[in-house]
Computed example of a mutant assay.
Amino acid sequence: MSCIFCKIVSGEIPSKKLYEDDKVLAFYDISPEAPVHFLVIPKEHIKSANEINEENASIISHIFVVINKLVKELNINETGYRIVNNCGKDGGQTVDHMHFHVLGQRDLKWPPG
């Protein structure tokens, strides 16, 4: 297994876990771009949003339910936050395992870059 996120899910690589259930793992980014910056990933290896299909689509809604829970716990639900999913090389995806960045507690400009 060469996927860094699969290694984090398996516990082979440590992470600062924020949330875990049978479907997803949320952990803090090791190079945060905001005071609050965490990732939510499916435990199942899904390379990118391009691989979402009828069989695995329910994980996306579950990820957003988990994000909603976590932003409330971290008190950024009222002030605002950004959810980012990069897809493919031109989209800025650097790990080939679908993941969602959640950033908050600072003014996030648009366009992002």
Score class of each variant (00 low, 15 high):
Ile76Asp: 07
Glu44Val: 09
Pro14Thr: 09
Ile83Thr: 13
Ile59Tyr: 13
Gly11Lys: 03
Glu51Thr: 01
Val24His: 07
Val95Tyr: 07
Val95Trp: 04
Glu55Pro: 05
Lys23Ala: 07
Asn50Gln: 07
Ala34Met: 06
Leu25Gln: 12
Ala34His: 08
Glu12Val: 09
Tyr28Asp: 10
Leu108Cys: 13
Lys16Val: 07
Asn77Tyr: 06
Ser15Gly: 08
Ile83Gly: 06
Ile52His: 06
His45Val: 08
Ser31Tyr: 09
Trp110Pro: 14
Leu18Gly: 11
Gly80His: 08
Val9Asn: 09
Lys16Pro: 04
Lys47Phe: 02
His101Ala: 12
Trp110Thr: 11
Arg82Ile: 06
Arg82Lys: 15
Asp107Glu: 15
Val84Gly: 02
Ala57His: 14
Glu33Phe: 04
Ser15Arg: 02
Lys43Thr: 11
Gly113Trp: 12
Lys43Asn: 10
Asp90His: 00
Val40His: 09
Val24Tyr: 03
Phe5Arg: 03
Ser10Lys: 15
Ser15Met: 05
Ala49Pro: 01
Lys23Ile: 05
Ser10Ile: 05
Ile63Lys: 00
Phe64Val: 06
Ser2Met: 04
Ile8Cys: 09
Ile46Phe: 00
Asp21Gln: 08
Glu73Trp: 01
Ile59Glu: 12
Thr94Met: 03
Ile83Asn: 12
Phe100Arg: 05
Asn85Phe: 01
Ile59Met: 06
Asn56Arg: 04
Asn56Leu: 05
Asp21Arg: 05
Val84Gln: 03
Phe38Pro: 15
Tyr19Ile: 08
Asn68Leu: 00
Ser48His: 00
Glu73Asp: 11
Met98Tyr: 09
Arg106Ala: 05
Phe27Lys: 07
Pro112Asp: 15
Pro112Gln: 12
Ile41Val: 14
Val102Tyr: 05
Glu33Gly: 14
Tyr81Lys: 05
Gly80Asp: 08
Lys7Arg: 11
Val65Met: 03
Met98Lys: 03
Leu108His: 13
Ile83Lys: 08
Gly104Asn: 13
Asp29Ala: 01
Asp22Arg: 11
Leu39Gln: 10
Phe64His: 12
Lys69Asn: 13
Pro111Lys: 04
Phe27Leu: 09
Glu78His: 03
Val24Ile: 11
Val66Phe: 02
Lys23Val: 01
His37Lys: 08
Ala26Lys: 05
His62Asn: 04
Tyr19Ala: 09
Gly11Ala: 08
Val66Gly: 04
Glu51Tyr: 01
Gly80Cys: 01
Ile60His: 04
Val102Glu: 13
Phe5Ala: 01
Asn53Cys: 14
His97Thr: 11
Ile41Cys: 12
Thr79Ala: 00
His97Glu: 10
Tyr28Ser: 10
Asn53Thr: 14
Asn68Lys: 13
Asp29Lys: 00
Ala26Val: 10
Glu33Leu: 11
Val9Asp: 12
Gly92His: 04
Gly113Phe: 12
Ile59Thr: 13
Tyr81Ile: 04
Asp96Ser: 07
Glu20Gly: 02
Ile63Ser: 01
Cys6Glu: 12
